[in-house]
């Protein structure tokens, strides 16, 4: 079985982003970029399935600017077999991303597509579900455990209030949640090897996909700030303030 894993290049999760003063967006100049953390979990899961003999090839794909090649090289260094970069300078919305991924899935015929549940830049949490819809495949979102059987899989999902376990028929789209695994670090020899692994370049037009935005961003602003309050000296003072000043106890 082949596993397809989309990965996104996003602002590193440790970076405190700045909103541009003119409201036109978020300032990304000289900001550290990394692989979306949920996508790292997806890559890791695919590699573990391959190591367990459940898969024979892991193909990673990214849709983004030429620099997204770095993100793909990171995935290759972790152990993915080959990569596809769909180059575009546009901000591609989840629906168009899903359409491009459908095109790739049609060509590659994976048995499983593992998608991060959300990207930490736009926080949309849509792509995996949309891709499953477009392919007419089953979806298992927010996975914290995946067990592959014969033509099916059992997935444990993180839902409000606890866990839900479902059986799904393959091929399927699974989206990953935090507790699925802890991604590995790429070793130096593997980083060197990754430079020689195959990486195909494509464009959205190769899949006949128009990436024009459906949503118009009118402005981007700073959230309403919150100011630091006071420090209290003791638990007794805290209780007094909460009762008599804030009125919340």
């Amino acid at each position: 079985m082949k596993i397809l894993v989309p990965v996104k290049r996003v602002v590193d999760y440790n970076v405190k982003i700045r909103v541009k003063p003119d409201g036109s967006g978020v300032d990304l100049t000289n900001v550290k970029m990394s692989m979306n953390p949920f996508d790292e979990i997806s890559v890791e899961e695919a590699l573990r399935l391959k190591e367990a003999g459940k898969a024979d090839e892991v193909v990673v794909v990214s849709i983004g600017p030429p620099k997204a090649e770095e993100t793909l090289r990171t995935a290759l260094a972790m152990g993915a077999d080959r990569a596809i970069l769909v180059e575009t300078e546009d901000q591609v919305e989840p629906l168009a991303v899903a359409k491009i991924l459908r095109g790739i899935a049609d060509a590659e015929k994976p048995g499983l597509i593992i998608v991060g549940k959300q990207a930490i830049d736009d926080d949309s949490n849509q792509t995996g579900q949309m891709l499953a819809a477009l392919l007419g495949w089953v979806q298992a979102t927010f996975a914290s455990k995946i067990e592959i059987g014969d033509g099916k899989a059992t997935v444990t999902r993180e839902v409000d209030g606890g866990l839900q376990t479902i059986d799904i028929k393959m091929p399927a789209v699974v989206t990953t949640d935090l507790r699925l695994n802890e991604p590995r670090y790429a070793s130096l020899p593997n980083i060197m090897k990754a430079k020689k692994k195959p990486l195909d370049k494509k464009s959205p037009a190769d899949f006949g996909i128009d990436t024009a935005a459906r949503l118009k961003v009118l402005k981007t602003e700073e959230p309403r700030g919150r100011e630091a309050g006071i420090k209290v000296k003791s638990v007794a003072e805290l209780i007094d303030k909460l009762k008599n000043e804030a009125g919340v106890l």
Partner: peptide, 14 residues
């Protein structure tokens, strides 16, 4: 909200 609520986007649907 985007970026974990560190920016707020106003979006219009076409």
């Amino acid at each position: 909200p985007i970026y974990a609520g560190n920016a707020i986007q106003t979006v219009q649907v076409a």
